[in-house]
Amino acid sequence: MGKIEVNHSRCISCAGCVGVCPVDTITLQGLTLTIDQAPCISCGLCVQFCPVGALTPGETYGASYTRKVDKVLVVL
């Protein structure tokens, strides 16, 4: 389990999340979204941005997880 999970059946390959990641650890290769988990700083910005809710915090999501999106943890 990583810090951020991608639900590939929801993802529409829009790359919007790539543009907000402060550590540039998300990439779209062709139409496939990949997240290199190691550099992720658990800022939650990508989760907050995603228009369709394809990203969710995973098991190892950091303690710095304080954004509005922490509602996600409750819903899951």
Binding site: A15, G16, G19, P51
Partner: peptide, 26 residues
């Protein structure tokens, strides 16, 4: 290369989108 530009970032230009200046479109 669009909103997800890596050319800018790799070149050391500040192209990060901040959530207060970025719309989530659908």
């Amino acid at each position: 290369d669009g909103i997800d530009s890596f050319i800018g970032k790799w070149s050391g230009l500040k192209t990060l989108n901040r959530v207060r200046d970025y719309h989530s479109g659908f």
